[in-house]
């Protein structure tokens, strides 16, 4: 039993590290980061991963070794000790320092992403003039772009279902709102997640640095159709974005004949 137990407990760190090692090549890993702060978040993740990983391997290997070494049949008595004050001090102080280091190293990125003060101020979109509003409801994403006067309430606002089109390479600020229950705006590629709370207007910002289409996922249970809220974020180069928005404003006043032409 001693050898079986040793093997079992030794397999934990070995396979544990191995699965983390092979995960990226199988795609069981972060989707590509395409936002300005995505890399920072990933970096913090990796810092913690290394610290945690080393501790994990060290403790698990010591555990397995203890099982191997002290599991032998041995008629003598165990060491009769009730502890060691110095040792206790060391293994309290060292982790404390490490943990405080982890804690303080997180703060800047958190402030950059979420604090109202650190929202971008120079770009086209600011906390006072957002690109638009994202409305979540059961089980729907509606993105509302302002009309030409920057008005988010008029009759001429643009509403798009399940698709959030944003310009590339500039900070995008939008207001996140909910019509009914809690939802959450989650774009894995942006490393961005923010709950939408009914009764609250929550400004959110990100900057996408690569054009493309990314999954927009609802990350807070919102009812039976939670999994159906699969939206997309489309990142277009700034000029294409402007052209797209202009075309949408044009299309708002379509008279239906274009559909006829299409089919004939």
């Amino acid at each position: 039993m001693r050898l079986i137990a040793t093997l079992l407990f030794l397999l934990v760190p070995i396979l544990g590290v191995w699965t983390f090692w092979i995960a990226p090549e199988h795609g069981w890993w972060f989707p590509k980061s395409v936002s300005s702060y995505g890399a920072d978040i990933d970096r913090l993740f990796y810092i913690i991963l290394w610290m945690v990983g080393i501790t994990f391997v060290a403790t698990e290997v010591i555990l397995a070794w203890c099982i191997f070494r002290y599991g032998r049949k041995d008629p003598s008595k165990a060491a009769f000790t009730h502890g060691n004050h110095t040792l206790e001090m060391v293994w309290t102080a060292v982790p404390a320092v490490l943990l405080l280091f982890i804690a303080f190293s997180q703060m800047k990125v958190w402030a950059d992403v979420k604090f109202g003060d650190s929202f971008p101020k120079d770009g086209r979109f600011t906390i006072d003039e957002p690109i638009g509003e994202v409305w979540a409801s059961q089980f729907d994403w509606r993105v509302r772009y302002p009309d030409e006067d920057g008005n988010l309430e008029g009759a001429d606002v643009i509403e798009k279902a399940f698709e959030f089109t944003v310009p590339l390479g500039e900070p995008v600020v939008f207001n996140l709102r909910s019509r009914d229950v809690l939802h959450s705006f989650f774009v894995p590629n942006f490393r961005l997640k923010q709950d939408a709370v009914p009764g609250m207007v929550i400004p959110v910002w990100f900057q996408a640095d690569e054009p493309g289409e990314y999954d927009l996922i609802c990350a807070e249970l919102c009812g039976w159709g939670h999994y159906k809220m699969a939206g997309r974020v489309r990142v277009l180069p700034a000029d294409e974005y402007d052209a797209w928005l202009a075309a949408e404003r044009e299309a708002l006043y379509a008279n239906g004949t274009e559909e006829l032409e299409e089919d004939e």
């Binding site: 993740f45 945690v52 994990f56 990125v109 979420k114 490393r191």
Partner: peptide, 18 residues
């Protein structure tokens, strides 16, 4: 050990966003 260590990611606010 595993459960405790993975908790550190969750405690860290920026990583927790993801």
């Amino acid at each position: 050990i595993i459960g405790g260590l993975s908790g550190i990611w969750m405690a860290s606010t920026p990583v927790d966003i993801y």
